[in-house]
């Protein structure tokens, strides 16, 4: 018997799952589709424009930095771009999207060496930079109101107050309305329903760990019930309000679960989720900013290495607290 050519020799295992970084990222994009769709339905063409610009700039920035012509590459830049777009208000000017998307990729990711090495969630770095730079556009009291199914309407014209800027007024929106997403807010954050659908897809595909969103949303709910301001007759309603209002849902399901910037240990992920919830509520209730999800997740990203070091799981058959 003759073997033509040479054999490949490698370490075991010799079979690999077909899953790749790219396929994971595509799954995340699929998961974000309902939210993106809702954004377009609610906020019209401006939403679509923002998303297209953000994704295009993100992919372009990454391709240029890496000097590769493969624009889509592993898809992570597209995910970053889309996430950033979904975390922007509908009426932001185009140049703001460009700056945000480019800084997300460059300052949030590439300076650390690219995918896998970034410490902070790139999309949130981009968003935080925008919030700090152009607070008026990003976190003012004036937000475009949604106009369901009016694709051609210009979001910049009609405005309303975000529910978080003045929670007392929130009662004007019913919780079901908030759940569906028919309220003023950032593009992708208003529809808890669409976000949940995508979230279930990610859990089904095994890409996210329920502990992070669970810990995050659970903490926000409990703190909302206890300290939420009690502007609903039922304090549990207040808790729910804090969960569906603002960026908690999108943050908990898509941003706090970003692989690269969150702990790898199960216990660490729970701590991470709870920490995000705590800081979010701290900022919401006592800070001057109406919303704290972005900063909460960034802060927890920063302590992720420390969490990882303190939550090394007990090995199978290991004695608890062994030397």
């Amino acid at each position: 018997m003759v073997i033509n050519g040479k054999l490949i020799v490698s370490s075991s295992p010799h079979i690999r799952s077909v899953e790749s970084v790219q396929s994971v990222m595509v799954d995340v994009l699929i998961a974000l589709f309902p939210a993106a769709l809702m954004a377009v339905l609610l906020f019209g063409y401006r939403a679509l424009l923002t998303m297209v610009i953000a994704i295009a700039v993100a992919m372009l920035a990454e391709a240029i930095w890496r000097r590769k012509s493969d624009i889509f590459s592993d898809g992570s830049a597209a995910v970053t771009g889309l996430l950033l777009a979904l975390a922007l208000p509908a009426a932001v000017p185009w140049w703001l999207v460009v700056v945000g998307s480019a800084s997300a990729i460059i300052i949030g990711k590439q300076v650390f060496g690219g995918i896998g090495y970034n410490i902070f969630n790139p999309a949130l770095v981009g968003r935080a930079i925008l919030v700090v730079s152009w607070g008026g556009h990003m976190a003012g009291d004036i937000w475009p109101s949604p106009q369901p199914f009016a694709f051609g309407y210009d979001a910049a014209v009609v405005t309303g107050a975000t529910v978080l800027a003045a929670p007392e007024k929130a009662v004007t929106f019913s919780l079901p309305e908030m759940f569906i997403g028919n309220i003023p807010g950032c593009l992708g954050e208003t529809s808890a329903l669409a976000l949940l659908i995508g979230g279930f897809w990610l859990v089904y595909k095994g890409h996210i760990d329920y502990r992070i969103p669970g810990g995050f949303i659970g903490t926000v709910f409990i703190l909302g019930v206890l300290f939420g301001g009690g502007f609903y007759a039922n304090i549990f309603m207040t808790g729910l309000f804090h969960v569906v209002a603002g960026g908690v849902m999108i943050g908990a399901i898509y941003m706090a679960t970003d692989f690269v910037t969150t702990p790898v240990t199960p216990a660490g992920r729970l701590i991470f989720g709870i920490g995000c919830g705590l800081i979010t509520m701290l900022i919401r209730l006592w800070g001057i900013l109406p919303e704290g999800v972005t900063f909460a997740i960034l802060l927890m990203n920063a302590v992720t290495p420390i969490i990882d070091n303190f939550t090394i799981p007990q090995r199978f058959g290991g004695v608890k607290k062994s030397a």
């Binding site: 300052i107 949030g108 590439q110 300076v111 650390f112 060496g113 690219g114 896998g116 090495y117 410490i119 902070f120 770095v125 935080a128 930079i129 919030v131 700090v132 800081i279 900022i283 800070g287 900013l289 704290g292 972005t294 900063f295 909460a296 960034l298 802060l299 990203n301 920063a302």
Partner: peptide, 27 residues
């Protein structure tokens, strides 16, 4: 991490500190 050569060391540390400072802006 595979930090670009010119940013290694203090440069990337400063940028990290910047983002950290950004996160603290929440307070």
């Amino acid at each position: 991490a595979d930090v670009p050569e010119v940013l290694k060391g203090s440069a990337v540390t400063l940028i990290t500190a910047g983002i950290l400072s950004l996160a603290f802006q929440g307070f």
